Amino acid sequence: MNNNPFGTKPHYQLLDGLRGVAAMIVVCFHLTEPLASSHLDNIVNHGYLAVDFFFLLSGFVIGYAYDDRWGQLTIGGFLRRRFERLQPLVVLGMTLGALGFYFTDSTIWPLIHTVPVWKLIVVWLIGCTLVPIPLSMDIRGWQEMHPLNSVGWSLFFEYIANILYGLGLRKLSTKALTCFVVLTGAVLLHFAVTNLNGDVTGGWTLNGEHMRVGLTRTLFPFFAGLLLSRVARPVYINHAFVWCSGLVMAVLLMPRLGGADHLWVNGLYEAFCIILVFPLIVYIGASGVVHNQREAKICQFLGNLSYPLYMTHYVLVYFYVAWVSNHKGITLWQVWPYALLTFSGAIVLAYASLKWYDEPVRAWLRTKLK
């Protein structure tokens, strides 16, 4: 934790750094995904759990930042602050996705060359609001609620969690919130071990099944993070950033468990990570301190980069996936230079988006939406 000189609450620098670590693993997951023969053998097999980690981090940070400020804060004021923080990069990600849409030439997206410009503009405008589009408006063919920027689905559920918190769940007593978290945790556990895929993936399609998955993946971690912010009493833990980064990487890089014959084993592992390991990581991260200026700069850089990286990297991944799909049978050893180039480009794009767009737009919104 680091004291803020402006009189606001101390800032959890280590948690910012961990968000950046997880965001980078998400990029690696998406780069290795097209090389896998199925969901059972991706090299970065559990990279998608970073989304669940983000939800828990979000609940913790929002509870810490806002729980004791509702005497001076209105619901509208809270939602405006979340809009200022989240929406600019939503718009940028959708815009970049729309600009690149017609240039991702691949047989895996046969629809993209038949989509009229007017329809692309409509999908882009809807995407900028994060309102999910129905399957009838899918212009890519992946059955996504946001086909111009795949990751938009998780921001949709992030907004739902924020709205639920602002409208009333923030008023739950600690005891009532504990009951709610236990209930949603039980739902998550049941889903993870009984799901036919043997994992918790899903949430990106506008239908009943995926909406259920999205809510299941959102409600427990977000409100578990909120509960943790209320009950945790951080104690000093030495080298917390190193320990937490190692745990995050170990969880997300873990190979698939159980194989095709025992899918429930992998589901149990993922539930264990979301319900127990992720809260432990956040607790340790909240208990740690930066030891020197170098570590502080690393955490600050990773934290600042994390959200822009998450919201813009898939624009480049679309081109990468198209290239891989046009070179059937390509191996990891053959593709790694292109993967490294895409990864590096994603970092550069995220940093440019942060400095030239996100920070200036958020500053402008703060003056306009007072």
Results as ranks from 00 to 15, higher is better:
L215I: 06
F223L: 00
Y159D: 08
V235H: 15
L215E: 06
G202A: 09
S245I: 03
G185E: 08
N162L: 12
C179T: 08
T178V: 07
N207W: 07
H190Y: 05
A161I: 00
Y165H: 11
L188S: 02
I160E: 05
R170S: 11
L206I: 13
N162R: 09
A176D: 14
V213A: 15
P221N: 10
G185C: 05
L172R: 09
F220R: 03
S245G: 15
S245T: 15
N162E: 12
T194D: 04
S229N: 00
T174D: 03
L177G: 03
N207F: 12
I160Q: 04
V242P: 01
L167F: 14
R170F: 04
Y165F: 03
H239Y: 03
M211P: 06
F223H: 14
R233M: 13
L206W: 10
R170L: 06
A161P: 07
T216E: 09
L206S: 15
F222K: 02
C244W: 03
G214I: 07
F156D: 04
L219C: 05
C179K: 15
K171C: 11
A240R: 01
Y236G: 00
Y236A: 13
Y165G: 09
F241G: 01
C179W: 15
K171P: 07
V187H: 01
T178Q: 13
N207Y: 12
P221L: 02
T184K: 09
I160W: 13
I237T: 07
Y236M: 08
F241T: 00
R212T: 13
L215Q: 05
Y165P: 09
L227R: 05
L172I: 05
L206G: 13
R230Q: 14
F223Q: 07
H210L: 07
E158P: 11
L188E: 03
V200T: 11
K175Q: 12
V213Q: 15
T201F: 01
D199Q: 06
F222P: 13
N197Q: 09
N207D: 14
S173K: 11
V200W: 04
Y165W: 13
F223Y: 08
K175Y: 15
T194M: 11
F180R: 05
L215M: 13
T218L: 14
C244K: 11
I237V: 15
A176L: 04
C244I: 10
P221G: 11
G166M: 00
L169C: 00
N195M: 04
I163R: 02
C244D: 11
H190S: 11
F157G: 12
A232M: 14
L188C: 01
G166K: 06
V200F: 10
G202T: 06
F223D: 03
P234W: 06
L164A: 13
L196K: 13
V235L: 12
V235N: 08
L169I: 02
